[in-house]
């Protein structure tokens, strides 16, 4: 497969810490790909390897069909990057930094630059040391979106933006996609991921635990069920695929894997169903499960349920 990003079995250790432990990631050309995982799961490390800043210990990484370590310089002509923690040179103004980055990347259109400065409401005459966190991020974002790169790698680019600027950012990402660019977006803001991403990869402890289109992931997983029963139910906790069970007298809430829904409904009917609501899990529930579930450490039901989703 020849996508924009193609990573398989990537490993990287820092001393004793195994930051990446066989990570897989594939991003097709032209898609906006969400890159999710708890703190310290290895997102920034993966991105730094893709940018040739770190050298992988093992596994395979291809960026735009090239080797990110050996062909770093030619590849970077086609890539724009916004780091999670933007540091600016304190005695250079934002405008100078944007121009420097533009010239390094082979020039940018003045009209495009002016338009982006206007949309992000950024004052380019301030010195790097005088910007707030959000404004530092805007400097990097303006430089990246003005570059018209084929691939945008954004590592938590909006963690300091206010809601208005978040809207501007989303507009820019959509424009980038519409002109055919590929976007890798690492983020902790789930609404942003839901609004922008065609596909997502979720990683945990340096390994990919889930990857696919959002709708597909939701479909594959589970359903939230709340029911009012005729009498207190029995044995629900022993049913396969049932998680997060809470019984309050005759009221039951739980999560069930979709392929076990049938068994659950039979058990519920046996106890006399008065009311029943079921809905697909929210994105939060979906992610939280992946962020916290750990095969060895959670109740057997949950572990089985997790296995069922693969």
């Amino acid at each position: 497969m020849n996508g924009a990003i193609d990573v398989a079995g990537l490993t990287k250790a820092f001393g004793r810490t195994r930051a990446l432990d066989g990570l897989d990631l594939s991003v097709a050309t032209g898609e906006v790909h969400g890159f999710l995982g708890p703190n310290g799961s290895g997102k920034s490390t993966t991105i730094r390897i893709l940018l040739g800043l770190l050298r992988a210990d093992g596994g395979r990484a291809r960026l735009l069909g090239g080797d990110p370590w050996r062909e770093a310089v030619p590849l970077h002509r086609r890539v724009a990057y916004v780091p999670g923690d933007v540091t600016l040179w304190r005695n250079l103004s934002g405008g100078e930094i944007i121009d420097l980055f533009g010239r390094l990347g082979g020039g940018m259109e003045p009209a495009r630059r002016a338009e982006l400065l206007d949309r992000f409401e950024l004052d380019p005459a301030k010195k790097g040391g005088a910007y707030s966190k959000g404004n530092r991020q805007k400097v990097a974002l303006v430089a990246a979106f003005a570059s018209r790169a084929e691939l945008l790698i954004l590592d938590e680019p909006t963690s300091g933006l206010d809601p208005l600027m978040e809207e501007v950012f989303r507009g820019c990402v959509r424009e980038a996609r519409d002109r055919g660019a590929t976007v890798l977006l690492s983020s902790h803001i789930l609404s942003e991921v839901e609004a922008l991403c065609d596909r997502v990869s979720i990683i945990r402890q340096g390994r990919t635990v889930e990857s696919g289109a959002l709708g597909e992931l939701r479909h594959l997983t589970s359903t939230s069920v709340t029911a009012e029963l005729g009498r207190a139910p029995e044995g629900l906790d022993r049913l396969p695929g049932v998680r997060d069970l809470a019984v309050d007298g005759t009221r039951v809430t739980l999560q069930v894997d979709n392929d076990r829904l049938d068994t659950l409904l039979q058990a519920l009917t046996g106890a006399g169903v008065r009311t029943l609501t079921s809905r697909p899990p929210t994105l939060e529930e979906l992610f939280l499960r992946h962020y916290t579930a750990d095969a060895g450490q959670v109740p057997a039901g949950a572990a089985a349920g997790h296995g069922g989703t693969r």
Binding site: G95, E96, D99, L100, A125, K127
Partner: peptide, 17 residues
């Protein structure tokens, strides 16, 4: 803190600048 220029001058072209 004085404001700086809104754009880069000719010298600021690359890593050595």
């Amino acid at each position: 803190a004085r404001p700086g220029p809104a754009g880069a001058g000719r010298l600021l072209r690359g890593p050595s600048g």
